[in-house]
Design a protein around this nucleic acid. Structure first.
Lengths: 198, 198
DNA sequence: TCTGTTTGAACGAATATTCAATTTATTGAA
DNA sequence: TTCAATAAATTGAATATTCGTTCAAACAGA
């Protein structure tokens, strides 16, 4: 088996330490010193592998986004290829995986905030946002008139973000099951409302 | 006319400077120096009137929250006392601030993030959240079965937060009208879906 | 003059970055 | 295999910068 090189291991170590420290101390409290401590490495290592703290933060956000992407793909592949099923899978994925961790919503919110003052983080955020939206529109197109599909997709996306925000606020008392249920209820309502009575 | 005392003027000056600086530089970039510069006062004045930077930030969030509260009250008073009308007024009020100031969503997001590591800001945030929710539930109770009113209220609240987030992300390309329209569409769908076909 | 207001230089704490020194790993000749 | 030479990885003290707070002094209005 091909063991990962030292560089791969160290980068992952530092990214995971970064996530842990942001969870515990927030974005402001996430200093190089604390991250180095949590990873049991030294402060100098960060600039060696990531150039700067900013580089590490960007890599960490990239990691979060790609985790989400993989969650979505995995859950979609496991469901029947029918539009409604796929939509439900998207909702499930957005509240599962890395996101299951009770504190990770806090980390997401920190990155969202930070993204607004960092062009690169903003770019990553936008790419992700667009993917979610076009995924939703694709399946909604098969369930309702085209002009309704876009607005419904925007509403679902906002709903997901909104529940994330509330999860972040609720400090551990997150109930992803409830958020998922409410999102799904909305989707069914939207399908129903945009097709009249069957 | 009763002119406000120096203290009242200075406090307001500093709060408005704080909002402006957070808009421009983010929460992290909002230093005492920049705030003092924006208010055309000196750095020493902050501790004189607010004790510390943290005190100024808390006062600023209090100001934002009370502005929102007044917006809601004013818009509700101007509408007929019917449940659906009142719900629409709540939605309008929650997006009226965005219209006034294209960048204010960014400031809200900064405060939300900060609130998670500051008990006092968190407390203020929760009070506001509860008020919104109980307002919504009160009027929804008159439009649908009680057990549906709570979940619908939670969905509306999440939707409002979600659109705020998207507004914050869109960097000036905000379209509050669209967000308001989508929220209202959802409300009508929810009322319709929870009453069967009339 | 007296009181409340305002200033801003000085200070100390916190922190990202740098880099010379040290440790660890790899190589290849004997 | 052994071992010295070389390269790569890692350390952490030193540095420079940034920022919140303090407070003695200056100022303004009554």
């Amino acid at each position: 088996m091909a063991r990962p090189g030292v560089e791969t291991i160290r980068r992952q170590q530092l990214i995971e330490a970064t996530l842990k420290v942001i969870e515990q101390h927030g974005f402001q409290g996430a200093t190089i010193g604390k991250i180095a401590g949590a990873s049991e490495l030294s402060v100098g290592i960060v600039s060696h592998y990531f150039g700067s703290k900013q580089g590490l933060l960007e890599a960490t956000m990239r990691y979060l986004l790609s985790s989400l992407r993989h969650d979505v793909q995995a859950l979609m592949a496991a469901r029947p290829n029918e539009p409604r099923e796929r939509l439900m899978a998207i909702v499930d994925a957005n509240f599962s995986g890395v996101q299951t961790n009770a504190q990770s919503a806090k980390t997401w919110l920190a990155f969202w905030t930070q993204a607004m003052h960092s062009p690169e983080l903003m770019r990553l955020q936008r790419v992700n946002e667009r993917r979610l939206l076009s995924n939703l529109v694709f399946y909604l197109h098969q369930l309702m008139p085209p002009e309704r599909a876009l607005t419904t997709a925007q509403t679902i996306a906002a709903l997901i973000d909104g529940f994330w925000l509330r999860a972040a606020m609720s400090e551990g008392r997150i109930e992803p099951n409830e958020a998922v249920a409410l999102c799904k209820t909305y989707i069914d309502q939207a399908i129903y409302a945009n097709n009249g009575v069957h």
